[in-house]
Amino acid sequence: MGFYLRTSLKAGPFRFNLSPSGLGVSAGIPGFRVGTGPRGNYIRVAGLGTTYFGSQAPVPSSRGWQPSAPPSVRPDGVIMRELSGTPVQHLVAVHPSDLVNQIRTAAQRRWMWPWLTAAIALLALVTAPYGLILAVAGVPAVLWLRQRDLARRSVVVFYQVDDTPAANYERFTGSGGFVSRVQRVWHAEAEGALHTPYQQKVNAGAGSLIRRSLGSLDLAGPPVLVTNIAVPSLHGTGRSVYFLPDRVLIRHGRHYADLPYAAINAHVQPQRFIETETPPTDAPCVGTTWQYANKSGGPDRRFKNNRQLPIMLYGRLTLTGPQGLLMVWDFSRADVAASLAESLNRMR
């Protein structure tokens, strides 16, 4: 299938290989490697269900549910409702999956080699000129520690996807959302209604305000996950969604949670947006307005430098779930958002 990338994965000094007998792992340098196996994680997704083979037992979570962030009030009186839903760390089930436990553990581990590098450099400066010998001798230690950090911050997973799930995932990874060129993606973080005439006047006559951040989409997957497949991914500021063959991973900072596709609802709708920045060229302009608009829609001439603004038509993708999940994304191409929603709902 097209979503498969490789049968050999590297994490630090370790190389994992998939063979008919299972997973094997080796470590060493080119020309000299020591191997053992099978180890790691192997997930088989087929029409009859998901089979998971791991190397670490699940750890129950004791954290309870907490509500999402309360609304915030801007200086102009506009109440902004956060579009973040339940915090990611509270979406974790009572018995989270083994895979998510390993990803969360790996993500929490910090890089140690930069600290060793800084310590060696400081000692080399303090003890100069003899510190040069210390710096040269410390290079192998830094390289070894970096490889160790890479291994400790990596979760190796081999996927085998068959039957109907393979066909659905093939369509997903090849859908318009991740193959077509969409010029811009935004993560909508908060929304607030504009009620008073003054609030609407100074906001180009809009009915609501959107706080958003620039996002992106790719097929990279989580930074700590080393896998043999392409992973469709949506990224915002400190927040990402990863679509694996058998589940959806949600990241906020270093916190991860997973949900089955059956618990994800994808909705798409057209979104008219008054653009104050340079508009993307792949989105249609459906009208214009003024930065300071009067009640009739014309320019309020009491304001200087009252520029004309384009009204763009975007596509809004909303992800919701019964556990309080809420994530909102705007795409400069509405057909890309529609393609993603269709592919997601097909994975249910």
Score class of each variant (00 low, 15 high):
Leu309Glu: 11
Asp258Ala: 02
Asp282Gln: 08
Asn305Met: 05
Ala293Thr: 02
Gly297Arg: 08
Thr288Met: 12
Gln308Pro: 04
Arg307Met: 03
Arg307Asp: 05
Arg301Ala: 01
Asp282Cys: 08
Tyr292Pro: 07
Gly297Met: 10
Pro260Thr: 00
Pro279Tyr: 09
Asp300Trp: 00
Ile274Trp: 04
Gln291Asp: 01
Thr289Cys: 00
Ile264Cys: 09
Tyr292Ala: 01
Trp290Met: 03
Gly298Tyr: 04
Asp282His: 10
Thr289Phe: 01
Trp290Ala: 03
Tyr292Leu: 02
Gln291His: 01
Thr281Ala: 15
Thr278Pro: 04
Ile274Phe: 06
Gln308Asp: 04
Ile274Thr: 05
Tyr261Glu: 11
Asp258Leu: 05
Phe303Trp: 00
Cys285Val: 15
Gly297Trp: 11
Asn306Thr: 01
Tyr261Pro: 10
Gln271Pro: 00
Glu277Ile: 09
Tyr261Thr: 12
Gln291Thr: 02
His267Lys: 11
Asn294Ala: 03
Thr288Ile: 02
Thr278His: 07
Phe273Ala: 13
Ala283Thr: 07
Pro279Ala: 13
Arg307Ile: 05
Asn305Leu: 08
Pro270Leu: 13
Pro279Val: 12
Pro260Trp: 03
Ile264Val: 15
Ala293Pro: 10
Pro299Met: 11
Asn294Arg: 05
Gly287Leu: 05
Gly287Tyr: 06
Pro280Val: 12
Phe303Ala: 01
Leu259Gln: 10
Trp290Lys: 01
Asp300His: 04
Ser296Pro: 02
His267Arg: 13
Thr278Phe: 10
Leu309Asn: 11
Glu275Thr: 14
Glu277Cys: 06
Arg302Phe: 07
Ile274Asn: 00
Lys304Arg: 11
Arg307Lys: 08
Lys304Val: 01
Glu275Gln: 14
Arg307Ser: 02
Leu259Ser: 10
Leu309Lys: 13
Ile264Phe: 12
Pro299His: 11
Ala283Pro: 02
Thr281Trp: 12
Gln269Phe: 08
Tyr261Trp: 10
Asn305Thr: 02
Asn305Asp: 15
Arg307Gln: 02
Glu275Asp: 08
Cys285Arg: 15
Pro299Asp: 12
Leu309Met: 14
Arg307Asn: 03
Ala266Trp: 06
Arg302Gly: 14
Ala293Tyr: 06
Ala262Ser: 15
Pro260Glu: 01
Val286Gly: 11
Ser296Asn: 11
Arg302Ile: 00
Gln271Asp: 12
Cys285Asn: 14
Phe303Lys: 01
Ala263Asp: 14
Ile274Pro: 01
Ser296Val: 10
Thr289Val: 00
Ala293Lys: 03
Gly297Gln: 08
Pro284Asn: 08
Val268Ile: 08
